[in-house]
Write a protein that binds this DNA or RNA. Sequence first.
DNA 1: CCGTTACAGTTGCATGTTGCAAGCAACTGT
DNA 2: ACAGTTGCTTGCAACATGCAACTGTAACGG
Lengths: 160, 160
Amino acid sequence: MSSPDKGESSEATAVLGDDLIRVVKLLHAVRDHAPRRHPDVDTSAYPLLFQLKDGPLRLSELAPRIHAEVSTVSRQVAALVDLSLIARGPDPDDGRAQALSLTPAGEELLVAIRNGRDRWLRGLLVQWSPADIETFSHHLQRFAAELDADLMDKTRRTDS
Amino acid sequence: MSSPDKGESSEATAVLGDDLIRVVKLLHAVRDHAPRRHPDVDTSAYPLLFQLKDGPLRLSELAPRIHAEVSTVSRQVAALVDLSLIARGPDPDDGRAQALSLTPAGEELLVAIRNGRDRWLRGLLVQWSPADIETFSHHLQRFAAELDADLMDKTRRTDS
DNA sequence: CCGTTACAGTTGCATGTTGCAAGCAACTGT
DNA sequence: ACAGTTGCTTGCAACATGCAACTGTAACGG
C-alpha cells in the first residue's frame, strides 16, 4: 500500500480489471436514470428486442443469446407480446415452435432506445477525438470477441 | 442495412453503445463461471470487500458507493461479519456508527479474487500487444470518469 | 441538566424475479 | 401406431431487494 509497485508489468491487466468492473457498475447505475422510452417496458426487455432485430428467432434460440433460462425468457416474451411489441408467428418447420419477431411498434421502440442511447453516448464523449472513439470502439469490439470465445469455451466444458 | 453507411460520423457511437452492452452482458455471464475463491461468499459481496480495501468505512458511506440501499448492505455486511471477513469496529467520533474494516482473512480473500481475475484477464488478452492493452485500459479509465461525472450530475438533479 | 429532535443501523413485511421441475402439445424414428 | 424427444408454459419455492417502522445514540435548545 505504501509503495506503489507500478514497476510490475503484470499490473496492467490488474488495473484494467478494476476499471472494467467499475465501468460495469457505473453503467448499471446509470441505467436506472435513463429515461423511459415506453412506460411498461423494463430495461430487462431491451436485450430481447435487440436480438430480434435481425430477424425472427425461436424462443429456444433467443434464451441462450441473452444468457438466461428458457422459462424466464418465456415470461418476458409473454409480457412483450401483450404489449404488442413482439409477435408470435408460426414456425414453418415445427408446429411446436414459434417464430418471434418484432412488430412495427417493437421496431419503433428499438430505434427510439438506440437513438436515445446514442444521443447520450455522444454527449458523454463530446470531448473525445473521433480517433479515440474509433480506437476505443475497436478495442471494445475485440475484447467482446475474446470474452465470447472464453465464455463459449467455459460453457462447452461445463456441458460435457 | 444493405448499404453500410460508414460515412455518417454519428454511427460510431451507436456501434460503440452496442458493443458496450455486449461486453457488460458477457462479463455478467462469465462471472457465473468464475471459480469460487470462498465457498460461502457470493460475487455480490465482492464490491463490499473492494470498497473496504483502502481503509475503514461506515455503513452509511459504504452503501452509496456500491449504489445500493442501506438496508441491503446491512444484511450483506452481517453475512460477511459472520464469516469473519470484515469486522465491525467502533467509530471514534460517533458511538452510533461503526467502522467496517477487512479482517486479515478478508484481505486475503480480496487478494485471491484480484489475482484470479488478473490471471484470467491475462489469459484472455495473450494475443494483445502491451500497447493495445495500455491504450484500452486508458480509454476505459477515461470512460469511467465520464460515466462517473454523468451519474453524479443525474443523481444530483434527482435529489434536488 | 433534561427533553426534544436528528441520525446510524437493524429488522419485519411485501413485492418482484428467478430457477427448477412438472406438464402439455407436437415432432421423429422405428 | 407407439415410444421417446423436443419446444414451450406454468406452478412452486427460494431469494434478493426496497420501504417503513423500530432501537439506540448523539446533538441541540431551553
